[in-house]
Amino acid sequence: MATSITSGPEPGSYPPPSFIDPATLMQIQSLELRVRAVVEGLFSGLHRSPYHGFSVEFTQYRQYVRGDDLRYLDWRLFARSDRYYIKQFEDETNLRCHLLLDNSRSMSYGSLAYNKADYGKTLAGTIAYFLNSQRDAVGLFRFSSELDEYIPPRYRSGHLRRILISLEHQPAGTSTGLITALEQVAQHVRRRSLFVLISDLLTPVESLSSRLGYLRATGSEVVVFQILDPAEISFPFEEAAQFVDAETGREMYVDPLAASVSYRTRFQQHLDDLTRCCENQGAQLHRLTTETPLEEALFEFLKTRQRTTQARRR
């Protein structure tokens, strides 16, 4: 699992790449189609879905238990055997992906020509476009201090556009409602899905760990993109100044000469905790700086997914 911070040699020019970057998309198409051939839902028809759906291809019977949908009860078998059985089919389904985009004010910070929010939106759009092109259902949870908008995963015409429009919203909120948002996501989504969390994750690790556990409890796969600004890592400030929290507006007088060492230590500690947390919860953590080319990020994502799928098959 990639935990190292991937960064490119040069920052991208501003304006940042459009939500749908054709070059990135082309690169993926030429590279990823095969890579993800065996991955569930990545390319429709190239693989068999590991999930049991309601398709025409029967797989097995299962003893009815209370709560099962009566529509799938095999009445003929009941007539023959006087037993209740549920008919299960192997459905050739597409990937159901939920994009979880942190749209809080802390994402608006950026020491480059663009900020973390721009980067995150582009990343989310790229993934959505890519998955949409693969006929996978893509949904969006956009949250700031609370859940701002929820677009259920669909694959239909215009759905991608709706997602892209939602992504255009500017960051809002006074705090990162990541924890709350994850709780709400867990309540909304009960089916196995792919969750792609795009956030700076500047929040206490302890509470994040349990929320990730909620998502993983449904058997869903969780991919975490941590977007960081290079300044947040290196803390390159020299002049003492009144530092203002981008989210809460709280002010603090900080002398970087005295505080930088402590900052780096504590920040690294946070990253380590976060890495440990994702490992424990089985989430795939990709740590990106805003300098990282999106193609690399997507490639890393696909590589990781491929490794996961292969491991699961074995």
């Binding site: 802390s106 973390k116 003492a240 009144q242 530092f243 203002v244």
Partner: peptide, 8 residues
């Protein structure tokens, strides 16, 4: 005293 907006 300068003002420096920071993420957190």
């Amino acid at each position: 005293q300068g003002r420096q907006v920071f993420s957190s």
